[in-house]
Design a protein around this nucleic acid. Structure first.
Lengths: 194, 194, 194, 194
DNA sequence: CATGAATGAGAATTCATTCAT
DNA sequence: AATGAATGAATTCTCATTCAT
């Protein structure tokens, strides 16, 4: 049911990710993207209205892809702790296996590269996670804070870790991922000690 | 000891922050920066070698300023939990009061806007925090992970929260900051339960 | 005897006239023409060698059509004043009923949109009118000036009036046409007063 | 009191006129204009907002210049026939001496090259002529038609004659100009014969 | 005959940087 | 020190034309 990229769209996406990650947004010109994608500039404009449209759609496509990975085995009525863990691990795995995509998202999320409308649409993709968090709060399992705080201390740090790994400063072994999840869970769970 | 910005440098910094935050990096041309700073383009080049140098130095200046705030009352031999808390709150406070600066840093940290050398220099500024963490690990107070993980789940989420606040989606009241710190501490402390 | 446009050629002509009149020549791209004509770009190239050829041939076709209207009941041996009047009214009528065509011609006549060769060919279509004028001069009825002057003060002003009418600034009623012809005839006839 | 063109603006105007007249509007690219004007592309944008602005302002400047020539010795209360003749000859002279300018105007007047606003402004420049015509009508000297008709058979044909002269098909000697004026006057004056 | 995806040269416009004043 | 006009390479986007289907 997910949107299928046409062959050339896929090539453009790949080229853009490469360029943005290696040299930054300001160096990802349409000419360079076309060259790296192995097509001509004009062809990009057959598939995308303009550069903004291209960036927006790539953003939405990646978000959709990541969320599809995140929720593929999600049970909306499953136990909160179990479902939270599954989702977190899926996202972690996606970002590790698709670090260029992950960094593209991180860049867009922090700056006005993609338009507000694309961001609004993208937020909907996360709805299952947000619903789970709400249920977790009602059941007294998760801290009763705005969900932005839950997100800030669970999903968001993954972006940083991936960028650090991309620079070769950290490995992100299975063991480290597990340890990270323990930190996350301690942060977001209701804390009844002391 | 800290580097003092000259009047014009200050104006350039302010203008750049404004433009980058309102319209993104790609819209912060030298001409617009000069206009907003109330000086002429040529003058920027009297104080900065070129645009790259300007971006690098602004980055370093802000990092230095933030770290000065973070560590002003830091006691390298103080109790770990107490010192950790002080530093975290100082950084949180700085980022809340200087959200444009914070977002500039976040942008730079994630992409190749500033050069590697500037980033390397900037890491040194954090040394007191890293030393404290190392001591905390030795004393069995902090989790024994690469310090990048400690950072990922304590300092880094503040960038996200500030960007969310900048968009008006969250308030970041004193109470919420306190709650955030509880989440942080639960994440990074050694967890002896179960 | 007249060249008959094939169905697709007709469609291209219509689309081009529409675009040129509404948005100007610079906005009449082959892609837009094709779209408006309801055919594909490639098809245009089956009927026309290239864009220049297309513009030239449309120009010639319209000129031919207009001249056919102008001379359909022309009697090369009829009385000069009568024949002059008939031709002028036929051209006026054609331009009023085909104002898009008229404006296309006016545009082409004034600028290097169509090639010299097409213009040269088109002049031949007017031969009956020019012959009539020559006879009128010999018979002492028309002023003995280069025929360009006769044309400048009789046929040419119609282009201006039509463009003014297209902008809705003038009505061009039957009465006004009659008055215009009186002005024309006074201009071109031999003036034996004073 | 007239707007004075700066040196570079003058150079751009000259280059544009040359290109438009030799190769048509579609061939007058900013790059070619800059080259011919002996400046760089970027410089054009220091003096003009964009190409549209440039075309509009050149149009207005030429119209203003032409009308200044037309009316320099105009006496609003002078005799109608005398004033009409003076203005017509001044315009004819201007167009003959500035045929590139004249053809630029003719092109613009017939197509959507310059914006409506520029055209509206330009019409005001002709006000003295229009006022004279109105007075001529009241005094029973000029035909009582919409002024567009007066214009169509007096001033407008000059554009055609100049374009014909530019192509070398006609000389436009003093004698021919005089004869032309006789044709004009016969066309527009009240005709009491027959 | 007809299509329309693909091309890449060329268009308008912007921008970091220089330099004469 | 400070200015800002001038530069021309680089950017985004368009367009006439081709060609495999």
């Amino acid at each position: 049911m997910r949107y299928q990229l046409k062959e050339k769209e896929k090539a453009v996406l790949e080229a853009t990710l490469d360029l943005v990650n290696n040299r930054g947004f300001h160096d990802a010109s349409m000419a360079k993207i076309a060259k790296l994608a192995g097509i001509s500039v004009g062809t990009i404009y057959l598939y995308f209205e303009n550069k903004q449209d291209m960036l927006d759609r790539l953003y939405l496509f990646i978000k959709a892809e990541m969320c599809a990975s995140a929720f593929w085995d999600h049970d909306p009525e499953g136990e909160v702790e179990e479902e939270f863990r599954k989702i977190w691990y899926h996202i972690a795995e996606y970002k590790l296996n698709h670090w260029r995509e992950a960094m593209y998202l991180a860049n867009c999320d922090i700056s006005p590269i993609v338009q507000e409308e694309a961001k609004r649409k993208a937020i909907n993709f996360l709805e299952p996670f947000l619903n789970l968090c709400r249920r977790g709060q009602e059941e007294g399992i998760l801290r009763r804070e705005s969900l932005y705080f839950i997100y800030a201390f669970s999903i968001n740090p993954l972006s940083y870790l991936v960028s650090i790994k991309a620079e070769g400063k950290v490995k992100l072994t299975k063991k480290q991922i597990d340890e990270s999840y323990r930190m996350v869970w301690n942060a977001v769970r209701v804390d009844d000690r002391k």
